[in-house]
Design a protein around this nucleic acid. Structure first.
Length: 282
DNA sequence: CAGCCACCGGTCATTACCTCA
DNA sequence: GATGAGGTAATGACCGGTGGC
């Protein structure tokens, strides 16, 4: 590689002098007299063809070959020790007061400008990392909510299906009660329609509120005390003598996954997939 | 209001490291 | 296995804009 050769990069936005394979941009800026506090212009003849790797050990840096305060253009990446001290300083306070900047620069053998730039970059990159972490957290929370939402929609579908079954059972019971003469009482018919309407209202996915009825919700619905939507004998009706169908709340363990109510009597078998349990499933 | 200074966001250039043909 | 090209992350630095003093 052509070490230490100076070229003019006309394509660069800044029109900098580039040093191919040799010194770094500090050198580049020294060439243009940009570095803070130097005031000197480094000439090509003064440049060195010596090259050191980025991660030179502190010991090596202390050697005359690599470390010479009179030749800052040789410096490239900061040494691990310099970075360590800067990091410690950044941890204690990520803003840099002028006094601390000067002190750090003196301690580290850097230009104050370098210290300031290092802090600026450190803040910007810390912020980027922080944004990434925040994004990951938010995404995880969103995914969790989405999964919960989908589970609730599934649960809602199960409950809707149960409404259909219950209505069928109610109608069958009405036919039995009506007897051969078809003398179904008007009161019973009205009650049945009301039950159907109320349950569908509860299970509605409309914007008026949650479409999900969990175990506790059904307790409220079924509860005969207070302002229940259902008639006092609702439990008896749905558990009636037709075929012993029972609407029963799942053990209230706080979970709302899956379907909660067993229409055919008995509790939902623990850990049993719904596919093996629902009467309309194979 | 102008000037100075510090900061931020965006960007560049360079290097080290990794993968792959 | 050695090697070179290409991709990528990390890093040091600058520019332009902005806001405080």
């Amino acid at each position: 590689m052509d070490c230490g050769r100076l070229v003019f990069d006309s394509s660069s936005r800044h029109g900098h002098m580039l040093v191919l394979g040799g010194a770094n941009s500090i050198y580049r800026d020294f060439v243009l007299g940009r570095n803070e506090g130097t005031g000197s212009v480094f000439t090509m003849e003064e440049g060195s063809n010596k090259r050191r790797p980025f991660f030179t050990s502190p010991e090596e840096l202390l050697e005359e070959e690599y470390y010479d305060e009179q030749l800052p253009e040789k410096k490239r990446r900061l040494t691990p020790e310099q970075v360590h001290l800067l990091e410690k300083s950044f941890e204690s306070e990520n803003k840099l007061e002028p006094e601390r900047k000067s002190e750090l620069a003196k301690t580290l053998g850097l230009q104050p400008r370098q210290v300031a730039v290092w802090f600026q970059n450190r803040r910007a990159r810390w912020k980027t990392k922080q944004l990434e972490r925040d994004f990951d957290r938010l995404k995880a929370a969103y995914d969790s909510l989405l999964a919960d939402h989908e589970a609730q929609l599934k649960d809602n579908d199960c409950l809707r299906s149960q409404v259909v079954i219950l209505n069928e059972k109610l109608q069958a019971k009405e036919l039995v009660d009506a007897g051969p003469a078809g003398e179904s009482s008007a009161v019973d018919r009205v009650t049945s329609m009301q039950i159907q309407a109320k349950m569908e209202d509860h299970l509605s996915t409309g914007s008026g509120g949650s479409a999900v009825v969990d175990g506790e919700g059904l307790h409220q619905i079924v509860d005969s005390s207070g302002d229940s939507y259902f008639p006092d004998n609702f439990q008896e009706m749905v558990q009636g003598p037709v075929d012993g169908c029972i609407v029963q709340s799942e053990e209230d363990d706080g979970s709302d996954d899956g379907c909660n109510y067993n229409l055919d009597g008995g509790m939902f078998p623990e850990n049993q997939p719904a596919d093996n349990w629902w009467p309309w499933s194979n």
